[in-house]
Design a protein around this nucleic acid. Structure first.
Lengths: 128, 128
DNA sequence: GCCAAGCTACGGGAAATCTCGTACACCATG
DNA sequence: CATGGTGTACGAGATTTCCCGTAGCTTGGC
């Protein structure tokens, strides 16, 4: 039971930075967030995430380098299933419909998705 | 600009109930949440959501009936784009890959998705 | 050895979230 | 009319989130 993951908005922003960079210092995360927040604010969020076990840190020079301990895949799965259940009443198809209704999708993205879907379908029903 | 929507966990639970039933009384929502919370707790959440403008209520008998003022589509879009940006670095394809990696998808669901995707592709590039 | 710069630890205040208890209103029934 | 059942309004405590200031440590450069 891989316990449910959930990130409040600000913590999610910080995790996003960590996922994007693989690892980061406080200053780097702050940079990613637009440098609007105080240095110590970002530090606090990182400490909260550390307490929760979603982040760890190693010494690097005189600073720390922070690493995510959960990958985006797992966080994504968790968030998606939450949305599926709450917003789309458990229907993956309905979620997908809403997802695909987004006008901003490029042809290339759509094709990549189709390919993925075909692979998935092929794997799902192996000739028995 | 349709302002960004975000529901904290418990409020999302309540919205889920409202979306599923179209409308509901406090008792019905509480029932949906498993009847573990106090009646007044559920009422409070509904009142908070009303303050935020996501819910309205009408008198019905001696009780109120609560209605969502935002549909699941809009909430879903908002949540999905948030996940796309934060977790999957803005890549719809990566989000989709994670979504489709879910083992729990039935063949039927996968096929429905493919049909949707095909329609979407056809609309995107009409045969010239 | 001393100092400024750069970091972290710590603490804390404001606001949001989550939960509930109590008070009170309404109404049906005896 | 008294009573119990069903609701809402109100207030409030505990916890979490969000943001920052200050104190103190460490290090590179002089």
């Amino acid at each position: 039971m891989p316990k449910d993951i959930y990130f409040p908005p600000r913590e999610l922003d910080v995790m996003a930075s960590l996922w994007r960079r693989q690892s980061a210092t406080v200053a780097e995360v702050r940079e990613d967030l637009g440098s609007r927040l105080a240095y110590t604010t970002v530090l606090s969020v990182l400490q909260t995430l550390t307490d929760k076990g979603y982040v760890r840190h190693e010494a690097e020079g005189r600073a720390y380098r922070y690493f995510p301990t959960v990958g985006p895949e797992r966080a994504g799965q968790s968030a998606l299933s939450r949305i599926r259940d709450a917003v789309f009443q458990g229907s993956a198809a309905r979620l997908f419909a809403s997802f695909v209704a987004d006008e901003g999708l490029s042809r290339q993205e759509l094709e990549r998705m189709r390919r993925l879907l075909d692979e998935r379908l092929a794997a799902k029903e192996p000739p028995r």
